[in-house]
């Protein structure tokens, strides 16, 4: 046996031992992990009952217009004329003037239904998820406005960067099948 072959045998042996030394822990790790695994996928969502409307959703999302939008539980709304989610506090008039609105982007539409009720709908194109209206509605109204992560906008980061800073720990992983925490229990139609 030549000198080169002698070395080659030793190298092959080291390689074989090394391979097993690497493969066995990884196999064990895989075995350990598979017990904590589920086929379920998860997405991020806000629990509206924990949310404190601190305003971080607007600024901390990786999307430059946040994937968090205001939603309206129509069946909870009081349809007030003096809406504390729509109008600034202490305004004298009640109309659609921009200077009267709480929303910095005028994303809430106010429309008259019948005396004395007004309907409020959200224009999600304009909404930036700041939660000012949500805070207003929770303070003096029925708390029918609330923030949710819209999944057509959310890129589902491994760790949601809003969740990382949310002071109320309101953003959590939820199963893909229950992707929204809707306040009035609205079930979206199966598509």
């Amino acid at each position: 046996m030549s000198e080169k072959n002698k070395y080659q045998n030793r190298r092959d042996f080291v390689k074989k031992v090394g391979k097993w030394a690497v493969a066995l822990p990884i196999a064990y790790l895989g075995y350990e992990l598979i017990q904590k695994t589920s086929a379920q996928e998860f997405v991020w969502q806000i629990d509206p009952y924990k949310c404190t409307q601190c305003g971080q959703c607007e600024t901390n999302c990786v999307q430059t217009v946040s994937a968090v939008k205001c939603m309206h539980a129509y069946e909870m709304c009081g349809y007030c004329d003096l809406c504390s989610g729509y109008l600034r506090q202490g305004v004298k008039e009640r109309n659609t003037g921009a200077e009267l609105q709480l929303c910095p982007t005028s994303a809430i539409n106010r429309s008259f239904i019948e005396n004395p009720y007004f309907a409020y709908t959200i224009d999600e194109e304009l909404c930036n998820g700041c939660g000012k209206c949500v805070k207003g509605c929770a303070a003096f109204g029925n708390s029918s406005l609330y923030l949710q992560i819209k999944h057509e906008l959310c890129v589902n980061c491994n760790l949601c960067s809003i969740a990382q800073t949310c002071p109320a720990e309101a953003i959590q992983r939820v199963p893909n099948s229950k992707a929204y925490n809707l306040k009035d229990g609205y079930k979206p139609k199966e598509s």
Binding site: E75, C77, G78, Y117, A138, G141, N142, K183
Partner: peptide, 9 residues
């Protein structure tokens, strides 16, 4: 479930 201060019209 929130404050239902105003009844549903």
């Amino acid at each position: 479930y929130g404050q239902a201060r105003f009844p549903k019209p």
